[in-house]
Nucleic acid binder design. Structure first.
Length: 504
RNA sequence: GGCGGGGUAGCUCAGUCGGUAGAGCAGUGGAAUCAUAAUCCAUGGGUCGGGGGUUCGAGUCCCUCCCCCGCUACCA
C-alpha cells in the first residue's frame, strides 16, 4: 500500500462486506478483517518521494484506507496495520516456528528484485528495458540487482504438500481457472524463496538477526493470523476463526496467497486458510486504469455521483464475480434506472402507495390465497436457499440475478391482478393482492440488505418490518407481515439517474 | 512453444447428457394507467470465428487454421 485506494481496493472489501453481512443475517458468527500492509522497499521509496518519514507516510495512507471503509459502508470487525506491535510479534513468532522446523537457512541472494511487484525474479523473467536498465518481461517493472546475504525459505520442499493440499481441498483456489493456474505453476517446480533483505530497513527485523529485515510478503500475509490472535492459539478469536474460511484477493496477488502463504503456514505447523478467491480487475470506459493516464476511478467520486448502494449493486451485478469488468457511466446508469428504480423501486412504490391510500395506511388484511398468490409467495420464500447457495460460493452476480427474477415475477403479478381495478370491484381481493406483493417485497428487501444495506433498510421501514425481524430466520410463512401494522407514507427508495441536460 | 479460458442477435452475455438457437439492454408495435413516464404483452430470418470430419442430426464431439485473454516456458 503506497497510494490512495482506488476502485479495485474498494471492490475486494465490498465483496467481503456483502459476504459478511449476509452470513451475519444468516445467524453465522463472522470475523471480517481488512487493513493495510505498510512495509517494504516500495513503501519506503514512496515515502522518500513524498519527502516524509516512512511512519508518517503510512499513517497518512492507512488513514485513507480506513476512511474508504466509511465511504463504502464496510462492516469489518477489525482493521489491522502491519506496523502494529501485535503484528510484529506475530510475524517474528511465525518466523521462529518456521525456522525451528528447519525450513529456513542462511545463504546469499544474487539476483533481480522488482520493487513494484515486490518479487524476486529469475534471469529469464527480466529483459533489457527501453531506458537501458533491466525490467521484468511480464509488465516492464524496473528490477534492480541484489547481492547480499539472505535467509531462504525451503519452498522447494513444499511442492508435493501443496499439490496434496489443492487435491484435498478442491475449493481452496477459486475461480476454477485460477486453481488450474496455481496447480500448473506448482507442478512445474518451486525454487527456494529469499525471505529477508539485509539492505532494507523499513520492515520487521528477523528474530536473532536484526541486520536482516523480513521479506515484505511474508510480513504482509501474516496479518491474517496476527488479527486472529496468533501466536496465542488458545485465545477465543484464534479458536473461533482460524483457519480462515476465505481470503479475498485481486488476481494480481494470487500466487502469494495460494502458494507462498499456505507453504509458510504448513512449515510453521499452522493450518492454512481453506479458500482463496481471486477476483478480476476493472477497466474504466474500456480503458486500462493507470496513474499516467489519469483515469483511475476514485471510489469517493463514484459514490458521490451515483450513490453508495447503486455503486455496490453495480459492482457486484455487472459481471460474474471472478471475471474482469468495465466500469462505464452508461452501464451503471442502466443498472440504476432499469434494475433498481424501475423494476425494484417502482414495484415497491406502486404497491405501497396503494396500500397507504386504500388500506388505511396499514398492512392490508389478506383473505384466502389463490394459486397465483401462492405461486408468487412460494417463489419469494424459495429464494433464500438459492441466494444462500450462490453467496456461499461467492456467486454474487448470480444471487442478484435470482433475486431479480422474483422482482420481475412480482411486477407481472401486479399487472395480472390489476389491484387498481379491484379497488372498485373487490376491495377485499385488492387487499389480498397488495398483501402478497408486500410480503414478497419483505423477502426481497431482507435478501438485498447485504448488498444495499441502506436502501434495503428504508424499504423494510416502509413495509413496517421491525428492526429485529430482518434476519433470514424471519423469512418464510412464519414471519409474515402482521395485518394492521401502521405504514409510513411511501417514498421512493431508488432514485432514477437523470443526466444533466447538455445545454445547462 | 506448452497449458488453460474465450470467439453466439446492435451491446453484455446464457446455452445441461449433441436434436435443427435463448435472456437482459437497445429498437419497433400494442395494452394498461396503481406507480419514480415507472409496468405488462408481442416482435430477434443472427453463416453460433474459418475450414474439414464423426453422426439420421453439432455452438454442443473430433481434427485443423485464425484472433483475443490468462498462466508458464524458451530464445540456439
Amino acid at each position: 500500500m503506497n497510494d490512495s485506494p482506488h476502485i479495485g481496493h474498494a471492490y475486494t472489501s465490498l465483496a467481503c462486506d456483502v459476504l459478511a453481512r449476509f452470513m451475519r443475517l444468516d445467524g453465522r458468527d463472522v470475523m471480517f478483517l481488512t487493513g493495510t500492509d505498510e512495509h517494504g522497499q516500495k513503501v519506503q521509496k514512496s515515502a522518500i518521494a513524498a519527502g516524509m518519514e516512512p511512519q508518517d507516510f503510512v499513517d497518512q495512507v492507512s488513514e485513507r484506507f480506513r476512511a474508504l471503509g466509511g465511504v463504502m459502508g464496510y462492516s469489518n470487525d477489525d482493521f489491522i496495520r502491519t506496523t502494529e506491535d501485535r503484528h510484529t510479534r506475530s510475524c517474528q513468532e511465525l518466523w521462529r516456528r518456521i525456522k525451528a522446523n528447519g525450513h529456513i537457512y542462511l545463504d546469499k541472494y544474487a539476483g533481480w528484485y522488482s520493487v513494484r511487484d515486490e518479487a524476486f525474479c529469475t534471469e529469464a523473467e527480466v529483459t533489457d528495458g527501453p531506458g537501458g536498465g533491466k525490467v521484468t518481461v511480464a509488465d516492464g517493472s524496473p528490477v534492480e540487482w541484489v547481492e547480499e546475504p539472505s535467509y531462504f525459505f525451503r519452498l522447494s520442499d513444499w511442492q508435493e504438500p501443496l499439490l496434496e493440499f489443492y487435491e484435498k481441498y478442491p475449493q481452496a483456489v477459486a475461480p476454477e481457472s485460477r486453481r488450474n493456474e496455481v496447480i500448473s505453476f506448482v507442478s512445474s517446480g518451486l525454487n527456494d524463496l529469499s525471505i529477508s533483505r539485509a539492505s532494507l530497513k523499513w520492515g520487521i527485523p528477523v528474530p536473532d538477526a536484526p541486520d536482516h529485515t523480513m521479506y515484505v510478503w511474508l510480513d504482509a500475509l501474516t496479518n491474517y493470523i496476527s488479527a486472529a490472535g496468533f501466536p496465542d492459539t488458545e485465545c477465543d478469536t484464534w479458536r473461533t476463526y482460524w483457519p480462515a474460511d476465505l481470503h479475498m484477493v485481486g488476481k494480481d496477488i494470487l500466487r502469494f496467497h495460494t502458494v507462498y502463504w499456505p507453504a509458510f503456514l504448513m512449515a510453521a505447523g499452522v493450518e492454512p486458510p481453506t479458500r482463496v478467491f481471486a477476483h478480476g480487475w476493472w477497466t474504466n470506459e474500456g480503458q486500462k486504469m493507470s496513474k499516467s493516464l489519469g483515469n483511475v476511478i476514485d471510489p469517493h467520486q463514484i459514490v458521490a455521483r451515483y450513490g453508495l448502494d447503486a455503486v455496490r449493486y453495480f459492482l457486484l451485478r455487472a459481471l460474474p464475480f471472478g471475471s474482469d469488468g468495465d466500469f462505464s457511466h452508461r452501464a451503471i446508469v442502466g443498472r440504476m434506472n432499469d434494475d433498481l428504480a424501475n423494476d425494484y423501486g417502482n414495484l415497491a412504490q406502486r404497491v405501497l402507495t396503494m396500500a397507504y391510500r386504500n388500506c388505511g395506511a396499514a398492512v392490508p388484511q389478506p383473505g384466502a390465497f389463490t394459486a397465483s398468490d401462492e405461486a408468487l409467495l412460494g417463489a419469494a420464500e424459495t429464494l433464500v436457499s438459492t441466494v444462500r447457495a450462490d453467496i456461499g460460493e461467492q456467486g454474487f452476480h448470480r444471487a442478484l440475478i435470482h433475486i431479480w427474477e422474483v422482482v420481475g415475477q412480482a411486477n407481472r403479478y401486479v399487472d395480472e391482478q390489476a389491484p387498481w381495478v379491484l379497488r372498485k370491484e373487490d376491495p377485499a381481493r385488492m387487499a389480498t393482492v397488495l398483501y402478497v406483493v408486500m410480503e414478497t417485497l419483505r423477502h426481497l428487501a431482507v435478501l438485498t440488505q447485504a448488498f444495499m444495506p441502506d436502501s434495503s433498510g428504508r424499504m423494510l421501514d416502509q413495509l413496517g418490518v421491525a428492526a429485529d425481524a430482518r434476519e433470514l430466520a424471519a423469512l418464510g410463512a412464519d414471519g409474515r407481515l402482521a395485518p394492521g401494522t401502521p405504514l409510513p407514507k411511501p417514498k421512493p427508495v431508488f432514485p432514477r439517474f437523470v443526466e444533466d441536460s447538455p445545454d445547462s
